[in-house]
Design a protein around this nucleic acid. Structure first.
Length: 398
DNA sequence: TCTGGGGTCCTAGGACCC
DNA sequence: TCTGGGGTCCTAGGACCC
């Protein structure tokens, strides 16, 4: 299979080029009314110099993205705003306009699908494309088609896009980073030793901070060093599945297909409070938020036409320790009250002496609403009831 | 005054059934 | 008396990704 990996660069204002700008932050950003309502679009109306600076930012947000000028200072995605302010105090802060982002995301993917229909969604700004059967795809090793995609994306969205071309998804993803922004990189099987092996292990999609630290401790820092290890040695240190996968990845082997369709597994809503809340002292406030989260998940499920059976809560204490509790129903639901009640049971099984900074509600084991209906009809026809009993151990808790 | 929000997948243990 | 598998479902936590 021949694969592209494409990612769009979401910051699209030419006047920002060369200026340190970060986009992100939570609710408590320093924002004028216009910024709050217009988001990134406000740039059309306000001179850049009138925007707030990172050093004036107050709150708990993280950075969603940053211009390349800001990245020079070491600022980047997922970094806390407070930390970023220390690195680059004069960077301009813009709020995220998620509706706009989603709009552009859709246009980006549509533009690609018109040219190459086999597309795998990897979030708002990334996709894999299997171009094996796209007419003309093999010309120039894929470069012509990649250029066509860039042109088409630029025309329909005004956004630039970086593309990696390779024999599989793993390498295509890595290749896409070689030439950013607005670049094309082609990596062939024969380039493995020169282009991939010198890279840090962390560049492999699937090796995160933990695995990287463990590899470092074993004195393995590059993909080439990983490839030089016996597969048995990797398995001894990382387990059967991970060890074998690491060996394959280091040798540039990946047989995963481009997956064009998938069903969601879970839907969730969570929120970090502006200040840490105490289960007893802030009970009323917490209760309101909790109910609201359940209602939002229920709305999401209904809007997208799903029902779920496993209700879960997640919370994070002030020391950043997280914990989850699950509870599986005997029937599927998308009802806010049912979710609220079940999540309430789950919450009762958790110690609440420490202050909380985050609360979340999740619904898993999803089924399409129409399939659940069919299932229910079937069960009814054989005389099985779907009445919800109180879980047996609940008696001990109340 | 560090550290968002929405996901997926994997592992591991225990219950329960055959 | 001690000792079996295998399979599925549920729960909890954790790594990782965008």
């Amino acid at each position: 299979m021949d694969a592209f990996f494409a990612s769009i660069e979401l910051l699209r204002y030419p006047q920002l080029k060369g200026m340190p700008v970060v986009i992100g932050g939570g609710r408590r950003r320093v924002d004028e009314a216009l910024l709050a309502t217009q988001g990134e679009r406000a740039l059309r109306f306000i001179p850049v110099d009138d925007f707030p600076r990172l050093k004036d930012y107050v709150g708990r947000g993280v950075i969603t993205t940053a211009t390349y000028a800001a990245r020079q200072f070491g600022v980047g995605s997922a970094m806390g705003m407070m930390k970023a302010a220390k690195l680059c105090p004069d960077a301009i802060v813009l709020p995220v306009d998620f509706d706009e982002v989603r709009k552009y995301s859709r246009a980006f993917k549509e533009a690609i699908r018109e040219v190459a229909p086999l597309v795998e969604d990897r979030g708002v700004d990334e996709v894999y494309i299997d171009f094996t059967d796209v007419p003309g795809g093999q010309r120039d090793g894929g470069r012509s088609l990649a250029r066509l995609l860039q042109r088409s994306i630029l025309e329909k969205t005004g956004l630039t896009c970086s593309i990696g071309v390779a024999p599989n998804k793993l390498i295509a993803k890595m290749a896409s980073e070689f030439n950013k922004p607005n670049g094309i990189s082609i990596v062939q099987e024969a380039d493995l030793k020169t282009m991939i092996w010198p890279l840090p292990c962390r560049k492999i999609n699937g090796i995160g901070p933990k695995s990287d630290a463990k590899l470092s401790a074993l004195n393995i820092h590059t993909i080439g060093e990983m490839a030089a290890q016996e597969i048995g040695w990797l398995i001894d240190h990382f387990g059967q599945a991970t060890g074998a996968w690491m060996h394959e990845a280091a040798w540039g082997r990946d047989s995963r297909p481009v997956v064009t369709e998938s069903e969601p597994v879970s839907m969730s809503r969570e929120t970090t409070f502006e200040r840490d809340l105490h289960a007893v002292r802030d009970k009323a406030e917490l209760g309101v938020v909790f109910t609201r989260l359940c209602e939002k998940v229920a709305e999401d499920l209904q809007r997208k036409g799903y029902v779920g059976k496993t209700i879960g809560i997640k919370l994070r204490y002030d020391n950043f320790q997280s914990l989850t509790r699950d509870q599986t129903l005997t029937h599927y639901t998308a009802d806010a009250k049912t979710i609220r009640q079940t999540a309430g049971w789950a919450l009762k099984r958790v110690p609440l002496t420490q202050k909380l900074r985050l609360l979340g509600v999740r619904v898993g084991t999803l089924l399409k609403a129409e399939d659940a209906l069919a299932l229910q009809t079937l069960l009814a026809s054989v005389g099985t009831t779907t009445e919800e009993p109180v879980p047996p151990y609940m008696g001990q808790l109340f």
